[in-house]
Write a protein that binds this DNA or RNA. Structure first.
Lengths: 235, 235
DNA sequence: TCAAAAGTGTTGAAAATACACCCATGG
DNA sequence: CCATGGGTGTATTTTCAACACTTTTGA
């Protein structure tokens, strides 16, 4: 026996949803397709699984090509398998989402793929079922970030509490009381106050914080509360 | 252009993790493989995606074959893609888990697949990476059931609060105070008290409850609390 | 000196926990 | 009549939400 006889063999794709935060708003990285079909349209960065690599390896390979980055936060989102989702040929695609520090993103790779960051509200229409992928990823991020500290993946190694608050506010499209917010995040014990201040955002300056990586890994799976009344937000 | 040239084509499998509750403990439905490879060993019920069906359709097809049931709770768990996970041939498998009312399960189908329910603690070793699938499914169920009312899918249309409590206790392998438990579940507003009692478990009898399906669908995504101190349980 | 953002504390309300006794009934 | 499981209430603690003023400093 050298294989499964009589079973269909299907092209297996991956699509990568890359999110970043520029200090103001959550953004997604899209490429301008340089090939058919849908040449010239905006799309997610994708690729195909090779015979000898896992889908995680394929995603990391594609993300490295696109961003120059390794070892970023990457999570399997969902596998999309509608028979007609790809007009070229029956294709099954597993979507992954990545959260990166937008500052580490390698600008010079832009040109190869004509990649561009889009605020989610200004995102162009995407090809195939990619719109659905983005919506699902946003839901997942909002869900998970209400309970787990994933949004730190979007920030540089040092960040201020006001920066962090703007990030949460932009992800949930809401305003949060700053007194309660800082109490909540500091009570997790994940943050270590630095001596230096970030003077770029104000005259007085805001203290930098860093993640305590020990506690970050230890508490990642715990239910923490980052968002007031999450029940009201996630419908 | 009639397809993607030069891309690998891979056999796409699905594996179904079927969970049930017998009033005492959470169980999983396994089949005894009647074919190679690993003939005679216990395994999940699986199948292959046909060219013209989605993976959801494939899972439902396979589950109908196995259990005789339609329309059960079914959720995509994860896609497993290690190149060597299947010794026969490179195969990618998307795992789905189903929660069913064990009483609706059609016993007569047993014989076709030599299917059997196993308490999770007494589960035999499974083939390939199926052990990993079961562990991941359990994690997902525990996670989700702490916040959302999915465990009702395991119960018959009418059930008592003591039955429900035993279910939660067995899923989380813990003891819960019955006064606080009934307060918690009743406060969700999801349960409708019936006039009749279940006399099978005690002389006095326990009132039956039914789900208010309107509210069940409406509140499914909300964060409800079914478990005390979930942070301590889910590590 | 003043505009603009950072930082901090208290109080009341709501939710969660701990805990123990009475009830109904079949045998 | 009694053993067994079903059902319920309260007091305490903890958590969450609402809310406003002072500090710093570059321009």
């Amino acid at each position: 026996m050298t294989g499964y006889n009589n079973e269909a063999r299907i092209v297996q794709a991956i699509d990568c949803l890359v999110f970043g935060f520029d200090g103001e708003t959550l953004k997604i990285l899209l490429i301008k397709r340089g090939f058919q079909p849908e040449k010239g349209k905006w799309s997610l960065m994708g690729g195909f699984a090779k015979m000898t690599e896992s889908l995680e390896q394929a995603s990391n390979r594609v993300l490295k090509q696109l961003t120059g980055l390794d070892g970023m936060y990457l999570e399997q989102l969902h596998t999309f398998s509608e028979p007609n989702r790809d007009p070229v040929e029956r294709t099954i695609s597993t979507a992954y989402f990545a959260l990166i520090d937008i500052n580490k993103y390698k600008q010079q790779l832009n040109d190869d793929y004509h990649a561009e960051w889009f605020p989610l509200k200004k995102m162009p229409k995407l090809i195939f079922d990619q719109q659905e992928m983005v919506e699902l990823a946003l839901k997942r991020i909002r869900y998970k970030a209400a309970l787990h500290p994933i949004l730190f993946e979007l920030l540089p190694g040092r960040f201020t509490i006001p920066q962090l608050q703007i990030l949460y506010e932009s992800v949930y499209n809401t305003k949060i009381d700053k007194r309660n917010f800082s109490k909540r995040v500091l009570s997790t014990g994940l943050l270590v106050k630095q001596e230096e201040k970030d003077k770029s955002g104000s005259k007085r300056g805001a203290f930098y914080y860093q993640l305590n990586m020990q506690k970050y890994y230890a508490k990642f799976q715990a239910f923490l509360n980052f968002i007031p009344n999450p029940t009201n937000l996630i419908s």
